[in-house]
């Protein structure tokens, strides 16, 4: 499988009045064709910053400071905004936003907002555009009937499906889905996840699936990337993270221990003491060392690099490799 996306040493900083927040600090990874890469972490770990950054639209006052985002052998970081909009954004990489149900305009009909998106990017007749829109609405399990409706007439799940169809109809190969199911009820959530999996196979899409919930991630992601305080803590395959052997990084272990399992009776849930660090003044050494149960002297002094400890399994923790 070839890589559809490569991120090299990406840094996104927020320039606030209080100082520079290093929300994403030197992050590198790849996304293979047809795979779902799960991106997990607590709020403030940089996962949404990364997602928005991949479309080169970090929310202000954030800026891409350094690094490369390579899509189809082309680094999109130096491209100018016009070209980016014309060729890359939405046509090669698109996004399903967090709280997608709120990303529809309440005053436009679904038809109007979907047409607007499509006609803005492609020159075509309205009729032709409508055909495309209908095709994708059917893909996501909606009838043409929703075109006449306004967002408030649709349920949360239906709105989410409209947003997914909108993310798809310029035929991008990469979709960044930022918490696409978080605000939905559990049944609808499972239905949307089924839909995304189906689309992935039918259209050969690659997903970056961002969520804070390790349980949801287990059901969708081929590989899982765990972030902590703007850095990658661990990357592993689904079976490396959720299999019998379990994850390697103490943070991933802690998160997994804190995830309640419905079908297993647990007397006591584990938790990670403390709170994530302030990224204005991140701790020295390993950013997790203040909360880590297996911390030792080296952790507060030197930052652990992300190293491959077995094929496809990368960890940034001094406990996980010799030296």
């Amino acid at each position: 499988m070839s890589d559809v996306l490569a991120v090299n040493n990406l840094k996104i900083y927020y320039y606030t009045r209080k100082g520079v927040v290093k929300a994403l600090d030197d992050v590198s990874f790849t996304l293979k064709e047809g795979e779902t890469l799960g991106l997990v972490g607590e709020s403030g770990c940089g996962k949404t910053t990364l997602g928005m950054g991949l479309l080169r639209m970090p929310s202000p006052p954030g800026r891409i400071v350094d690094g490369e985002i390579i899509i189809d052998n082309e680094n999109i970081v130096p491209l100018d905004e016009n070209e980016l909009r014309k060729r890359i954004r939405w046509s090669k990489i698109s996004m399903i936003f967090q709280g997608a149900m709120n990303s529809l305009t309440p005053v436009y009909s679904i038809k109007k907002q979907m047409l607007e998106t499509l006609l803005n990017h492609r020159e075509m007749e309205e009729e032709q555009a409508l055909e495309i829109i209908k095709k994708y609405l059917n893909y996501v399990g909606l009838s043409d009937d929703v075109l006449r409706r306004y967002p408030h007439e649709l349920s949360g799940g239906m709105k989410q499906r409209v947003v997914i169809a909108t993310a798809l109809f310029l035929e991008p190969k990469i979709i960044v889905a930022d918490e696409p199911t978080t605000a939905l009820d559990v049944v609808v959530q499972a239905q949307i996840i089924n839909l995304l999996k189906k689309l992935k196979h039918e259209l050969n899409l690659s997903f970056i699936f961002i969520t804070h919930d390790l349980a949801t991630e287990a059901e969708v992601a081929d590989r899982i990337m765990v972030m902590y305080a703007g850095k990658i803590a661990e990357i592993g395959t689904n079976s490396q993270i959720y299999g019998r052997q379990g994850p390697s990084h103490p943070y991933t272990k802690g998160l997994l221990g804190a995830t309640p399992k419905l079908r297993e009776k647990v007397e006591e849930l584990a938790f990670i003491p403390g709170t994530p660090p302030d990224l204005l003044n991140p701790p020295t050494g390993c950013r997790f060392h203040e909360r880590c149960p297996v911390v030792f002297d080296k952790c507060s002094l030197n930052e652990p690099p992300l190293r491959e400890i077995e094929p496809e399994h990368f960890v940034a923790c001094w406990r996980c490799y010799d030296e």
Binding site: A190, A218, E219, A221, D222, S239, I241, T259
Partner: peptide, 24 residues
């Protein structure tokens, strides 16, 4: 409801889950 709850267990990334409920 119970069938729909996700769980952190390996090997489910390619399975389409059966949720025994219809409609909205």
């Amino acid at each position: 409801l119970i069938a729909a709850v996700p769980e952190p267990i390996a090997g489910k990334e390619n399975i389409i889950k059966d949720i025994p409920i219809k409609g909205e």
